[in-house]
Amino acid sequence: MNIIFYIAALIALIATFRVVTHKNAVHALLYLVVSLLAISVIFFISGAPFVAALEVIVYAGAIMVLFVFAIVMLNLGEDSIQREANLLQPGVWKIPTILIVILLAELIYVFASNQMTAGNVRIVDAAEVSQRLFGGYVLAVEMTGILLLSGIVGAYHLGREKKREYHRYLQTNEEEHE
């Protein structure tokens, strides 16, 4: 179990360093997903399976898809077709694939050896987290709900296509000219 932590930590560090130093946004995003999966493995072996699942679903799933949408909408680079062709070359996805396969091997090893319950790791499961979440932290949950609502409203307001609106002085001036 010890060596699994160090391998996953090494993968997380390599992938994070590649995110920071990579030139292409989509490739960096791929490495960021690998880094999140490695951290999810660390959560899993430290007795937090619920949060490990949340990390994969929310972070590596939803938030990264938001980034992909933004990059697609920005349509960065003048030669996007050339870049699309570059995406299919094996040099692009070789290293992320190797890192992901190592993580998969670790996961299979953890499940196969069934060391999760044999070790001295105390598994804090979803029921315990939920009881704590809606017990003592219920005010924070409501505040988080308000934060998410304001985030939705703000994103909608900022992303909306506005029609041109003039200041009222400009409007009256235009009407006078006409």
């Binding site: 972070y59 920005l74 987290v129 704590r132 988080t144 998410l148 703000g154 900022l158």
Partner: peptide, 27 residues
């Protein structure tokens, strides 16, 4: 204890809201 995982759930929600507003601002 379960408190660390509770905090990570709050961080997840905050990151989601931050990314939504931040990407709209970038657009």
């Amino acid at each position: 204890q379960a408190d660390g995982q509770v905090m990570l759930i709050f961080i997840l929600a905050m990151a989601a809201a931050e990314v939504a507003v931040g990407l709209a601002l970038i657009l």
